[in-house]
Design a protein around this nucleic acid. Structure first.
Lengths: 174, 174
DNA sequence: GCGTATGTTCAAAAATTATTGAAACATAAG
DNA sequence: CTTATGTTTCAATAATTTTTGAACATACGC
């Protein structure tokens, strides 16, 4: 039943085997995956973040891939997402060209960045649209009730647009 | 090229043809669909809500289906979703068993209800989980840094759970 | 009480989104 | 310049979510 006596302790190029997640690490991942789901962040991204979050030291690419059992592509894309949203930081061990990853100190700040990146573009794109719609409604014989609704909607949109930039400085440039 | 002289003004059971969305209605739908997307609300639901929002009078099932060009199933499920989240109200014309739909007066309140329904269950389910995880981490020789992170996480979770019920009375029972 | 207008359900199909893995790419070290 | 290592890209596949439509329920007006 066991594989045919794999060369034991093969030197040099043996792929180092990685520990599967502990029960608690797995449970934490469930938590992060669930929360991420609300904002439409994919499971793999949440799992990566969760692993970093529960790790005392920075974690490198291969460890992420190995412990989570996911493909290189997913790890790369997941880290890109997290990087782009300012949710992780890399440190480089001297004498190695391998990057090692940590969660950004403030999860709260990360969340705001994430939220902003989802909501702001939608608000911005909608702004001229709402103006046009409202103007159109006022032009034609639209009902006062509808005009009232559209006016409120546009006011909201404008207020949200003002509010967002106040929450945190815009994402640092890479 | 035109269909073979369809019986014009067929009496009684002719399916009444519905006007397609005006340019402005369509643009408003784009707005709602985009916003809904952030919370993972399906396109069809957002389209229905948008139509009601832009309509001076309450709209019935067939009109929704006809003007949006969607299936009965989608309209039924979409209205169910909106109903369940307190986002629409129905009025019945006397002498007809047909329901006609309107958006709930406060979009803000609707949004809070929607948010709650997405976030609260996740928070509640996570609570005991986080307790276990933290207890586990403290038991074993987990790093102080990780324990600190998990503690913050649990504190957040607890605070959010307290905060949510304050935002609005729980959804009225159907 | 019927017969039918009005809605609902749910399995199957379509559409969308996430993941994989192999090949391309980048670059530090030799 | 060449190689070895580490990462990204992206077309193909897999997984998930949404939509459809026809069969099924219900209750209302007659």
């Amino acid at each position: 039943m066991t594989p045919p006596a794999a060369k034991l302790t093969a030197r040099r190029k043996s792929r180092p085997s990685f520990a599967p997640l502990s029960a608690h690490e797995a449970e934490l991942a469930v938590f992060f995956v669930r929360m991420a789901g609300i904002l439409g962040v994919p499971r793999s991204v949440a799992e990566i973040y969760s692993l970093l979050y529960a790790s005392p030291d920075a974690v490198d690419f291969d460890q992420i891939q190995g412990r989570l059992g996911m493909s290189k592509g997913s790890v790369s894309q997941g880290l890109k997402f997290l990087r782009d949203h300012g949710m992780v930081l890399s440190v480089k061990a001297p004498g190695s060209r391998r990057e090692r990853w940590q969660p950004t100190p403030s999860l709260a700040a990360s969340l705001v960045t994430l939220l902003r990146s989802q909501v702001l573009p939608a608000l911005e794109q909608s702004s001229p649209s709402l103006d046009r719609i409202l103007a159109g409604a006022q032009g034609t014989q639209a009902s006062p009730e509808v005009i009232e609704r559209l006016t409120r909607l546009r006011r909201w949109n404008a207020r949200a647009l003002e509010l967002f930039p106040l929450m945190l400085p815009p994402p640092r440039d890479a």
